[in-house]
Write a protein that binds this DNA or RNA. Structure first.
Lengths: 219, 219
DNA sequence: ATGGTCTCGATTGTCAGCAATTTTGTCACA
DNA sequence: TGTGACAAAATTGCTGACAATCGAGACCAT
């Protein structure tokens, strides 16, 4: 609905896919919501054919579920699978954290510490949005520093699937107080160029995330 | 070419995708080989539209590369990326091996040991095909035992991408002699219900695979 | 021979329309 | 009121035709 259609511009299938991906990430469309081809086509100013192929892409990526003759809906990821995803992310982000610790330069280490300080400040000021931003930056920077493109792509895809749980978590009161020391431990280990320590700290952090997700669903 | 078209049966897009996946795995089509839509349509007895969506799927999976107006080709995975893939697989299969060690029953342990004995016999008899079969069974069984569906799917997808290097490796003389003890160590740790040991043994095994791949390309 | 331009064939990309299927709405009847 | 049958609407699935694009080879001038 928020999406206007610019007349004249031809919107490709991958552009449509990107828009839908964003809409899912932002929570504009919720799990199990139907994605009607004709509606999307009008909303994004694309042909139905392009919308169709976009939905195909998203199905392979695991964001969308399709049933024969019944159309596409946003896939609803069950708790059990979300925990699996966090487990896999733990393995991969631990790998990345270790590699990052091996490769980080002094300038980059200072940048990482700055993120840590910003997150501390955010917790002190109770600024949830700033904390979430720092969280994203931290994980993103470690993945970038690792130079592991395959792991990066895999993590991205998995995170997109579990976005609903991530969202729940970040708005949970007291969550940042708990995770801040975990994040600082990761930063410390990476800046100390301790690969094993960094990997361990990352695994512990994501184990705590898994636990928090489980608790947040119990309510 | 080997693929005949059964007249009368309607071949769906995912069936075509499966056939092409097989063809890539089996080495019937080689990297950089063009995949012409009309040819595939005739070979598999499908419409061009179905072939098109199949190629779309495979592109998202990373098996196929598409260039605007120039069609699809089998993606050629560079060495550097193949090593990244093995690294990611190491992290994920180590996770699976650990979980398998936690969950394995006595019956399953005996089955695992049987695979180990078969692999020993294959090396003794110089039966490369049997060894490769055991290798596949072993890794597959550990992944299944772990119960980690997300990791399983990810590993599958990655392995399909790097299949060319796997193939090179298995035909390399002396390779099985080197990897047999690594495999046996994994089996032993899993059957001893030692998760950390199993994970470590798996990581070491895949580090050795990475090294062997690098060497095999240098020639 | 070399380089440039042009044309043609091969191939991909796109669309509109129709067929098939599911869902929704209506109505008669117990 | 509830239920089943049936018609109508909505939606997806598919195909065939056409437009757009690219590469190869012919042809020509230098």
């Amino acid at each position: 609905m928020a999406a206007g259609s610019r007349t004249g511009t031809a919107v490709t299938a991958s552009e449509v896919a990107a828009r839908i991906r964003e809409a899912i990430s932002a929570g504009d469309v919720v799990p199990n919501q139907r994605l009607v081809e004709a509606d999307l086509a009008e909303a994004y100013g694309a042909s139905r054919g392009h919308v169709r192929t976009a939905l195909g892409e998203l199905t392979v990526e695991g964001l969308v579920e399709r049933i024969q003759n019944r159309g596409a809906r946003v896939r609803s990821v069950p708790l059990e699978e979300a925990l699996e995803i966090v487990e896999v992310r733990a393995a991969l982000e631990a790998l990345c954290a270790g590699r990052a610790a091996e490769r980080i330069t002094e300038d980059q280490a200072e940048e990482l510490r700055a993120i840590g300080r910003a997150m501390e400040a955010a917790v002190r000021d109770g600024d949830q949005a700033a904390y979430a931003r720092g969280n994203t930056e931290l994980h993103g920077m470690l993945i970038r520093l690792s130079g592991q493109r395959t792991a990066a792509a895999t993590i991205d895809r998995l995170r997109a699937q579990a976005v609903r749980f991530q969202y729940r978590l970040s708005t949970r009161p007291g969550r940042s107080q708990q995770s801040l020391p975990e994040h600082l431990a990761i930063i410390e280990a990476v800046c100390a160029r301790d690969p094993d320590g960094a990997a361990r700290a990352m695994r512990e952090h994501l184990a705590s995330v898994a636990k928090a997700i489980e608790e947040s669903v119990r309510d």
